[in-house]
Design a protein around this nucleic acid. Sequence first.
DNA 1: TTGCCAGGAGAACGTACGTTCTCTAAAGTA
DNA 2: TACTTTAGAGAACGTACGTTCTCCTGGCAA
Lengths: 196, 196
Amino acid sequence: MNDFEKDFDYLGRIQDYYADNRCLPSYARLMGLLGFASKSAVSKLLARLQLQGFLTRSADGDWAPTDRFFERTLSSQPVPAGMPVAARDVGSDAFAIDQYLIERPSDTLLIPVKGDSMIDAGIHEGDLAVIERRNRANSGDIVIAIVDNEFTLKTLGREQGRFVLLPANPAYPVIRPKAELEIFGVLVGLVRKYRG
Amino acid sequence: MNDFEKDFDYLGRIQDYYADNRCLPSYARLMGLLGFASKSAVSKLLARLQLQGFLTRSADGDWAPTDRFFERTLSSQPVPAGMPVAARDVGSDAFAIDQYLIERPSDTLLIPVKGDSMIDAGIHEGDLAVIERRNRANSGDIVIAIVDNEFTLKTLGREQGRFVLLPANPAYPVIRPKAELEIFGVLVGLVRKYRG
DNA sequence: TTGCCAGGAGAACGTACGTTCTCTAAAGTA
DNA sequence: TACTTTAGAGAACGTACGTTCTCCTGGCAA
């Protein structure tokens, strides 16, 4: 393992710590975490990671992760077993999930999916719907509409010039709103977590 | 504003600070942030927020946000028509999804899904599979296996003591590997983007 | 009015913090 | 070989840290 890979391995452990604790570890804890016996080693490592753009200093002078800190490996080709993920091999790329899904952060929110009315569209109960707030949508879009004071996730359709809400499950009826259909937002992404 | 609302306001400012700095503020900074003139006021506030389940102590004894701390990014309650949205945007919380899905960043990578062999599990072509690298898995897990030097996403099953790979699409056959089955990782999450 | 309670002020304390030195050992280069 | 570079060890320093007291004050109930 060369120096570059070693620092990448260190970075991985810091990322894991951050995922657990939602905060960067102190110098003392980094010593234990990385196997260092001195804080100056930690200090120099952090300086190197800052140069590579993974860390920065906050306004208060504390260390803080950068966007690059949260980039994950995107790989479409199998890599030999035993190769560390962190060592970005050929065919792999860096990738930030949130930036991929969310284009307009201030207009975007996450809403848990209830029920199975969109199951045929691959949208399951418990999935997290990434919704961009908007009052208009096109036929064919999957939208969050407000019906009877409740959020409803359905495909927007048209019938005789009127908007209707189409479930993606034959067990559910098409919703034909009597009044104006109130669209809350448009589905721009979906997030599902497995294992609890 | 009663005591409960006041604490909620304090919590909001702590959440804002966290979104900016990706770390909870120290007692001294909380004093400035909340308008307190003493640290004991901070100490007691944190104790109250802990009771309400917004904060907790990490294994190292530090304060750490709980899941509930981030809950404002999820709107689980229906929003009455015409009312302003109680749900918070995802805007300031720059990596909400990433942190939701990924527990061990250094062992996690993203792999684009090819084909429709898992369509009945709600996994579509073009989705991004969030994979945690691991050589072992349990029957019933959805895994990435390496077959013919290609990634294959299937449900892990057992047949007469041997591992097999089960598609979630009747058009595809069960894969019964002749040699040892090479498991690359386990599916821990799924990400889908709509609208190009 | 009195007593009680809780949020906050203010101060003291011990410690863990981040920084910054010098020094060592190993690796690379001429 | 000798020179240079660099990751890390180790120690020292000043400070900001979290905790824990006591005391003050306003609100509420009896």
